[in-house]
């Protein structure tokens, strides 16, 4: 009986430990996001804080100021659900129905053609010049 409860206890302890790891990983990610926001507001460059945070966390990992394992759990979790976080932005399109109604053809052609050209040119150059592994 006591052996069994010890086993459960151990399991709980492990769950608690990995939960703590996850929280720490999120804490570090948010600290870098905060740093990015801070720098973005201090120096007047038109780069949003999240992009600066992305550059900062990459630099910190590269300089070995933080370990990959310490942020990986949170990063993987967020990237798994990246699509979900975009949905509310997409729903925001419904607020522009009237404007889109008047200019839909211009917007459609300009955005559509430009996007296809950009996709093709970028992919072509990368494919042409990249070294294959």
């Amino acid at each position: 009986m006591s052996h069994r409860s010890l086993k459960i206890n151990l399991k709980n302890k492990n769950a608690f430990k990995s939960g703590l790891k996850m929280l720490k990983a999120f804490l570090i990610l948010f600290i870098f996001l905060g740093l990015g926001e801070l720098i973005s507001s201090l120096i007047k460059i038109p780069l949003p804080g999240n992009i600066l945070g992305m550059i900062l966390i990459f630099t910190a990992l590269k300089l070995k100021l933080i370990k990959l394992e310490s942020v990986k759990p949170a990063a993987d979790t967020l990237l798994n659900y990246l699509i979900l976080f975009f949905i509310p932005f997409g729903v925001g399109l419904m607020s522009y129905f009237d404007f889109i109604k008047s200019y839909w053809l211009i917007l459609l052609v300009a955005a559509g053609v430009s996007t296809l050209i950009t996709l093709y040119v970028t992919a072509l150059i990368q494919q042409k010049f990249e070294k294959n592994d």
Binding site: L29, L68, L79, F86
Partner: peptide, 14 residues
């Protein structure tokens, strides 16, 4: 939900 876009972009750096 869209709030998590900010940390997700930082996660792309990772």
């Amino acid at each position: 939900l869209s709030f998590f876009l900010g940390p997700s972009i930082v996660a792309l750096g990772v």
